[in-house]
Design a protein around this nucleic acid. Structure first.
Length: 511
DNA sequence: GCAAAATCACTGCG
DNA sequence: CCGCAGTGATTTTG
């Protein structure tokens, strides 16, 4: 994650530069190179089998990430191998492979992978040639004989952003057979059949199931409602219960953004920018960028660079186009979310799509309320209270703002008028179903933008790290600054609640 | 120190 | 506005 923080920061700095056409910006390589030279990496010794710290189902968005973790060392090549001594001689054995779609692999089955050897592909200098039994191909051949475990990483198109790729660690496989066949080019290529070792948790299997639900080929088990938003969002949000008989949460009115009633004084007079089509990173004439201390908050592909006390986005009355990158939290749902029944924590929220760290997920919609008059609502979990930042902000998206050399600068707490209390008991959106965790994968970020000459604060949720599909989305509800949320002498039903998040670092209570 | 492996951002096309 | 193919500068490893 340190890699990605640095990569985002470098992207931000690169985006801000005057970029002559033709220059290709590879912040991933730059970030990788910096961390490599600083020796910020793990599992440098190659190994067969499991890599400490990497779980089956973990996802990555750059080859460099897997390189730094020691999951798959080569920055490009699909086959990683190491030299192992047997009784007589040293021989190369394959330790991990990446099946990314460059070759004609057969990767449809979740338990069997037909993998192509490396080399021989045509490029601009020469045509296709026969593959040779050397390097990775030789290592795979030797691994077939040895029967050692090989880590398999599957590279796929990202379901949300079709131009980018996501890499899924699918666990350990064993090579069963190999053969040579003629490719379309007419040249010989090696093929290897790998079988997934039984007993490992599903990873690619989950992705395949989602694919089927998406195409409507198989029905979703436990589906109650195809869309609880009734079309209020840009994407449908399914309601699913495959745990018990409960038919759904209590009734509420679905809205997609926060509602301020007129009586609130949390707003302040404001003005937008004067940019004509899209606000350009590095353009300090843009007042919205100036409000963010000169830093454009998002990278070119819309990922939040760093958590900040406040992010200033362009608003409805800014003259820039709606596709201006500085409106990342206003473009509606991009991922296919579903509300599902958890085993022991009521309803929860998860996604069919994966999220890369820093991706906008959804806003916390609801009604801004007076905390004092409606404090009785606090026990039911439908209140977002920004005064509970004390613990929750400690779990930074990053330890802070990452500088160009990889060093980190601490960041401040959110800059929101305390208290900003949003109730989603009667009126709300998907965010009201997100449960608490002491080790969350989502964080909240105050965002301000202007509408009708007034600025409004919105609470937006972003992915704290890469989140694989079907993982429950959770954020830290935090702890009241006073330490005693029920300080008004209220009943035990509100205030601190027992935590069931199950994280090793669980605080025991929240709220 | 060079060759091999293929990535990923960007551009233009339909 | 979308996906797709084409292009170029680039990395770590052996």
């Amino acid at each position: 994650m340190r890699f990605d923080a640095l990569r985002r920061r470098l992207s931000q700095l690169e985006d801000a530069k005057e970029s002559p056409a033709g220059i290709i910006r590879r912040a991933d390589l730059k970030a990788g190179n910096i961390l490599m030279t600083k020796q910020v990496r793990t599992n440098m010794r190659k190994r067969i089998g499991t890599v400490p710290g990497v779980e089956i189902g973990d996802i990555f968005f750059f080859r460099m990430e897997m390189c730094l973790l020691g999951l798959h060392a080569p920055s490009m090549a699909g086959i990683d191998y190491m030299s192992v001594r047997n009784d007589l001689e040293e021989e190369p054995l394959a330790v991990s492979i990446v099946s990314s779609g460059y070759y004609d692999d057969d990767a449809e089955d979740k338990d069997v992978l037909i993998y192509s050897g490396q080399g021989g592909a045509a490029n601009k200098d020469k045509g296709a040639t026969d593959q040779k039994l050397e390097r990775g191909n030789l290592a795979l051949e030797r691994s077939l004989r040895r029967g050692n475990e090989v880590r398999v990483i599957r590279g796929m198109k990202d379901s949300v952003n079709q131009v980018s790729k996501v890499y899924l660690y699918d666990g350990l496989f064993r090579i069963q057979e190999s053969w040579v066949e003629k490719a379309k080019s007419g040249c010989n290529i090696f093929k290897y059949k790998l079988a997934r070792i039984p007993g490992q948790p599903d990873a690619f299997g989950v992705w395949k199931s989602i694919e089927k639900w998406r195409e409507g080929l198989s029905s979703r088990a436990g589906l109650i409602l195809p869309d609880i938003t009734s079309g209020a969002e840009s994407m449908p949000v399914a309601l699913v219960n495959d745990v018990d008989e409960e038919k759904g949460p209590a009734y509420f009115t679905y809205v997609s953004t926060v509602k301020y009633s007129k009586s609130f004084k949390l707003t302040q007079p404001a003005y937008g920018c004067n940019c004509r089509n899209a606000c350009q990173p590095g353009n300090l004439n843009c007042s919205c960028i100036r409000k963010n201390e000169g830093n454009f908050p998002y990278t070119a592909n819309g990922v939040l660079v760093c958590r900040a006390p406040m992010i200033h986005e362009c608003g409805p009355t800014c003259p820039c186009f709606p596709n201006c990158k500085n409106r990342a939290s206003q473009t509606g749902l991009k991922a296919r979310l579903e509300v599902f029944k958890t085993k022991d924590r009521g309803w929860g929220l998860r996604s069919w799509d994966s999220f890369r760290a820093g991706t906008f997920i959804c806003e916390y919609a609801g009604e801004v309320i007076e905390k004092v008059s409606q404090v009785g609502e606090e026990g039911d979990g439908y209140v977002f209270d920004t005064s509970h930042v004390y613990e929750s902000f400690k779990w930074n998206y990053e330890p802070g703002l990452v500088e160009e050399d990889g060093s980190i600068e601490a960041i401040e707490e959110p800059n929101v008028p305390s208290p900003l209390v949003i109730s989603s008991k009667n009126v709300g959106n998907v965010a009201r179903f997100m449960n608490h965790s002491c080790y969350p994968n989502v964080f909240w970020q105050p965002i301000m933008y202007e509408n009708n000459n007034e600025s409004f604060i919105h609470i937006a949720f972003f992915a704290m790290r890469h989140i694989p599909p079907m993982t429950e989305l959770t954020f830290d509800y935090g702890k009241s600054r006073s330490g005693e949320a029920a300080a008004d002498g209220g009943s035990t039903s509100r205030g601190r609640r027992k935590c069931l998040c199950g994280a090793p670092i669980c605080r025991g209570y929240f709220g």
